[in-house]
Simulated scan of single mutants.
Amino acid sequence: MGLRTLVIIISLTFYTTPNIAQSITDSNAVNLTKYKKIYHNVITTRAFFTNTSNTLKVKDRKSNQSFNLEPNKQDRIGLSLAFRSFNVSYSFAPDFISENKDNRNSKLFNLNLRTFSGQHLMQTFHLFNQKGFYIKNNEVNQYFPETKNFKIGGTTSYIFNENFSFKAISSQDEKQLKSTASFIPNITYYYSKFHLKDNSAFNNLDSSYYSLDIAFAPSYYYNYVPSKNLFLSVGISAGIGLNHSKSRGEDHLTTLLTELSFRGSANYDINNLYCGLHYSYLSLNHNADSGSQVIDNIPFFNIFVGYRFKAPKKFIKTAESINEMLKLKS
């Protein structure tokens, strides 16, 4: 495929953080409570490797036969830089990674964003735009280069325990100091469009499928701090909701939706140097039409190494001016 830029993301996400007046020590970290601390006036850099995709499993409810719709996957490496509400990330799919050597004109664009409001409310956003899919089962393994899948959605979450730090899991601009857990209810919603197309000499396929999911999914997370430098986290959620879907040639259908997700993280830091990994898996299960069941899977794996360093005074002054203009606390 050659070196190709897949993602250039510049996101500005503003949220209110506590007003910090005391002196800053320990690499510009300030304890919010005895359970967590925040890294303030610090630039966070990170190099990362990511593998993610959106795969569909279609199952005939009468015959119990099934097949998988798997994208021609790509592994990406990249760099990111973050300071307060400003985050820049760049990643690409290099040919020297074995997974990327036979992309066969496939495309993958994936965007993941997370924002926080206060100590409790968390919002995540996901977007997948994929082209090039394999149709696989025990008898078939055929590639459809023109087949496309688009998915957009996210999750709104409420973190009950103020001592629990989700930022220690997701962005490392906070640190969990003592082990604690939290109940986190979630509302998950996704819109998906799948277009199966093949105009080869052997096939003339042109079929579309639309789907809207919404579910309420209570979750439980536990952050475990076995030592000063090691941090482990695990979370699981199970939910129920509704799916509204439409296939070409079929009537609109509204059916029961079930959701199951898992997330595990590990992080190790020595002063300003840190490294870690994340793994998550989301599965949405529902009926697609009068005779088919769809299992919609989103796996995500990320491994990273990063470094925090004190921001120059000019950065800090500019950030404070922006916060003042937008009437945000520093």
Rank of each mutant, 00 (worst) to 15 (best):
M1F: 10
T16D: 15
D26G: 15
K36V: 01
I38P: 02
T45F: 03
R46G: 02
R46V: 02
F48H: 06
F48P: 04
F49I: 11
T50I: 15
N51F: 13
T55I: 07
K57M: 01
K59P: 00
R61V: 08
K62H: 05
N64Y: 03
Q65V: 14
N68E: 00
N68G: 05
N68K: 13
E70C: 07
K73R: 14
K73D: 05
F83I: 06
S85F: 10
S91E: 12
P94K: 03
D95V: 07
D95E: 06
I97D: 01
E99D: 04
E99N: 14
D102I: 01
K107V: 13
L111I: 11
L111F: 06
F116N: 12
H126F: 05
K131N: 04
Y134S: 00
I135M: 11
K136H: 02
N138E: 05
Y143I: 07
F144K: 07
P145L: 07
T147L: 14
G154N: 09
G154R: 14
F160V: 08
F164P: 06
F164Y: 13
A168Q: 01
I169G: 01
I169M: 04
S170H: 08
K175Y: 04
T180P: 00
I184G: 00
I184M: 02
N186W: 00
N186I: 01
I187M: 08
T188G: 10
T188K: 15
Y189C: 09
D198T: 09
S200K: 12
F202P: 00
N203F: 15
N204M: 05
D206E: 00
D206N: 14
D206Y: 03
Y209I: 08
Y209E: 03
N223H: 02
K228Y: 09
N229V: 08
S233Q: 03
I236G: 15
S237W: 01
A238G: 15
G239L: 13
L242F: 02
K246F: 03
K246R: 14
K246I: 12
R248I: 08
R248E: 06
D251E: 01
D251S: 14
T255E: 06
L257N: 11
L257H: 04
T258L: 05
E259A: 15
E259P: 02
L260A: 11
S261V: 03
A266I: 10
A266Y: 01
N272M: 09
Y274D: 07
L277K: 05
L282V: 12
L282T: 10
L282F: 04
L282I: 11
N287Y: 11
D289F: 08
S290K: 12
Q293R: 10
F301Y: 05
F304G: 09
F309R: 07
K310Y: 02
K313E: 01
K313Q: 12
T318P: 00
A319C: 08
E324S: 15
M325I: 15
M325Q: 10
M325C: 04
S330C: 07
S330Q: 06
